[in-house]
């Protein structure tokens, strides 16, 4: 139960951070934090007690630990997720730089172009 709470809390913290952010770079970093909640959730889901990583030095049947492997699917998912996160973060940061260039501010309170 505890891992789920932590994962949810990290996502929640990220959203709170965006909600009260006074700087777009700060908001994008908070988004990255929010995403890290998903890594925590996925990996804890795949974790089983007493297991090792799904890397085989010999055939799994011979080594006799086929039954106690950590789920490789979620690890693959998390790897995908980390790459996606880096892409999204760098793209949004590039946008924040462009906003600074065009609006001369990165404070969302001072950006008024999209009201009403």
């Amino acid at each position: 139960m505890y891992p789920y709470v932590v994962a949810g809390a990290i996502l929640f913290l990220g959203v709170i951070g965006i909600a009260r952010s006074r700087n777009l770079v700060h908001a994008v970093v908070c988004l990255a934090v929010a995403q890290s909640g998903t890594y925590v959730l996925l990996l804890t889901v795949g974790y089983q007690r007493g297991a090792t990583a799904p890397i085989f030095q010999s055939a799994p049947e011979k080594a006799g630990y086929a039954a106690t492997l950590v789920d490789p699917v979620v690890q693959a998912l998390t790897l995908t997720d980390i790459v996606v996160s880096a892409t999204v973060t760098s793209m949004l940061l590039a946008l924040a730089v462009q906003i600074a260039k065009r609006h001369d501010t990165v404070d969302p309170d001072e950006l008024r172009s999209l009201r009403g």
Binding site: A7, L42, L95, Q98
Partner: peptide, 29 residues
């Protein structure tokens, strides 16, 4: 100037949506 601002809002909110989805996918898994 408005385009980059709109794109950032779009990106942040949609990404949050995607992460909430992914959390759900993890729970179903």
């Amino acid at each position: 100037p408005t385009a980059v601002h709109g794109a950032l809002n779009f990106g942040v909110i949609n990404s949050l949506g995607a992460y909430i989805s992914l959390m759900g996918i993890g729970m179903l898994y």
